[in-house]
Design a protein around this nucleic acid. Structure first.
Lengths: 110, 110
DNA sequence: ACTTACCGTAAGTCATCGCTTACCATTTGT
DNA sequence: ACAAATGGTAAGCGATGACTTACGGTAAGT
C-alpha cells in the first residue's frame, strides 16, 4: 500500500460520520463489537463493516479475546494523517506568505 | 455551523482523491480555475464543483481578480482538522497506555 | 453434547456523489 | 457595441457506499 493510498484510505474512513462516532466511543479505551454497537442506531453487522474499513485504514487494531474481539484506536494510523496535515500546513503557510508579498509588490505598482 | 459539522465537512472534502489533487496543485500558491483544471483529466465544471466543496469546508479562500477567481489554501481550515487529530492523538495514546496497564494487571492474576 | 452468545460475511436495496453537457452571467479586449 | 474569455449553475446519468436481513462459524456456559 503506497503512502498516498494509505492517506486516501484514512481520509475516506474518517469521512463517514458513523465511523467518526465509533472512533469517539473508542477514545476512552478498547471495546468489543457488541458494546460499540449497542448504543448506536444501526445494526451490529453495519458496525462490523465500519470496523473493517477503519481497521483496513490502519486506524484501529483488533485483539481477539476469547469469544470477543476488542477494537482499539491505533495511534500510528492517526499519526500518519497528522503528519500529512502538518506538511500541508507548512506549505499553506508558505504560500500564504508568498501571496501576501506578491500582493504588496503589486500594490506598489499601482 | 457547529464544530462537529465543520470537522465533518473538512473530512468529507479531503476524502475525495480529486479534491486532494486540487489541494496539491495549490500548495505552491493560488491559482485561477482554468489553470487548476487544465492539467486535470476532468472537465472545468467538475473542478468548479470540487472547489465549491473545498471552499464550503473552509479549506480554500476565493479572491475575485477581475475576470478570474483565485483559489488559495486556507491555513485556518487545515489547522482546524489538525487540532482535531491532535486531540484524538492524545486520547489514543492515553487509552493505549491504560490498556497496556490493564493487560499487565490482568497478567498478574493468571 | 447441546445451547447460547459473539461476531464476521453475503446478497440485495436505496441514497449519495462525481462527472458530463448545456446554459447563463460577468469581464476583458477590439 | 460586439466578440472572446472566464467561470459558476442546472439537469441527468452511472457508480460508489451505507444499511438491512439472513446465514455460518467459533468460543463459552450448562
Amino acid at each position: 500500500m503506497s503512502y498516498e493510498d494509505a492517506i486516501a484510505a484514512t481520509m475516506t474512513a474518517l469521512a463517514d460520520p458513523t465511523r467518526r462516532d465509533i472512533i469517539q466511543r473508542l477514545r476512552s479505551g478498547p471495546l468489543p463489537v457488541g458494546a460499540i454497537a449497542a448504543p448506536m442506531p444501526i445494526s451490529r453487522p453495519a458496525v462490523s463493516q465500519h470496523l473493517r474499513v477503519l481497521s483496513d485504514a490502519g486506524l484501529l487494531t483488533v485483539t481477539p479475546a476469547g469469544n470477543r474481539r476488542l477494537y482499539a484506536i491505533a495511534p500510528d494510523g492517526v499519526d500518519r494523517l497528522r503528519q500529512y496535515l502538518d506538511d500541508l500546513w507548512d506549505d499553506a503557510l508558505a504560500a500564504f506568505a508568498r501571496a501576501a508579498e506578491d500582493q504588496a509588490k503589486g500594490k506598489s505598482d499601482e
